[in-house]
Write a protein that binds this DNA or RNA. Structure first.
Lengths: 193, 193
DNA sequence: TTCGATCACCCTACTAGTAGGTAGGTATGA
DNA sequence: TCATACCTACCTACTAGTAGGGTGATCGAA
């Protein structure tokens, strides 16, 4: 396997489980089986690594959202798909959304990372706003809030749920918290015949 | 002022704005005007500091919740009080709830801190569950969820809202997110005559 | 009331270990 | 012959933490 890709994979896992500042090039070098100095060949500074990590993560994340959207899915189905992205990450060794992990240690990052972090949140809210707007039309998610409020609340909910579930080492806490959202999806008319 | 108290205050601010691992005894010593070694007199190890910080924070936090409860306040009023605790912290230089900050860097803490962290979340959920149970009776908060679900969702929402508002340096994001909750408080019957 | 001991509190000076990062060399394959 | 990808060996800056000494307040006893 490509060494650089392996480095990114390991670094992402470490950043999402321990935090970006909580692992060192030395840690990384031990796990990959490459000398510490060689990592600097691929990522001259740790800031470079952070920038590539968040770029790659955002790309992958919004590609997944695109996949949810292109199918002729209902708003409710899209929402469930969105939630499952966070849920899967959470269930997988308590990994946080990379942008939650980065957001917590905000101050140690340069402007390039901060810009991407901000963009991630804005893009998420935009996507969710479109989702809840659609829900107003197709009626697959109940509720009285404006799509904008719903979107921001939804983002806060999944990120917060991930955080408290991880802190308590109890993945079911995530499910319970987001149930406040899934409860708003009316049971389907039983698909008879 | 008491040096130890000053140390705790500064350490708490730093932990809540930058993260617990992101400040050193050297940073602390500069701000307090005391030598680094002298801090070890008050807190032999940084783990001791962490333990005292979270103990003090939890105490203060639940004292505030007690104050909300002893008054003959409606569930809605209690909820607004609860939200304002998080909101004020957020508005104040983007401080996180200490337990959010600690939760993010979970792995670097010893079992004593982790136990207190877990207890904080459980206690919060218990308090909120009681609140939403009360709401079922006094009708000051609408909604169909069970109090348990509402409680867990509420905790996730405020912690997540704090996080994204801070990451985007936009306090209004917090308000927008929690509006999904406050919208559930029906406008009071206009108090005529 | 003063002497001496004790204590809280802070200091200088140091340790071992780790962080990110660099200089310069080497093997390999196009 | 040149770039890629790795290496050894090193650097400086900083981390938490320790050893041991100084100072001033407090307090009990002569």
């Amino acid at each position: 396997m490509n060494t650089k890709a392996a480095l990114l994979n390991h670094a992402e896992t470490l950043a999402r489980t321990k935090g970006f500042d909580a692992f060192s090039y030395a840690d990384l070098s031990r796990e990959i089986g490459i000398r510490k100095a060689s990592i600097h060949y691929h990522f001259p500074s740790k800031a470079d690594l952070a920038a590539e990590l968040i770029a790659r993560y955002s790309q992958r994340f919004f590609d997944q959202l695109d996949d949810l959207q292109t199918e002729s899915a209902s708003a409710a189905e899209q929402l469930l798909g969105y939630l499952s992205i966070y849920r899967n990450a959470q269930a997988d060794c308590g990994q946080l959304c990379l942008c939650v992990a980065f957001g917590a240690g905000r101050d140690s990052f340069g402007p390039d990372v901060l810009v991407r972090l901000d963009r991630f949140h804005r893009q998420s809210i935009d996507w969710l706003t479109a989702l809840f707007t659609r829900a107003k039309n197709d009626g697959t998610i109940s509720g009285e809030n404006t799509p904008d409020i719903d979107a921001k609340a939804c983002l806060a909910l999944v990120e917060g749920a991930q955080l408290i579930a991880r802190a308590s080492k109890d993945p079911s806490l995530f499910d319970a918290a987001v149930q406040s959202l899934t409860n708003r999806i009316p049971a389907k008319e039983t698909p008879c015949d």
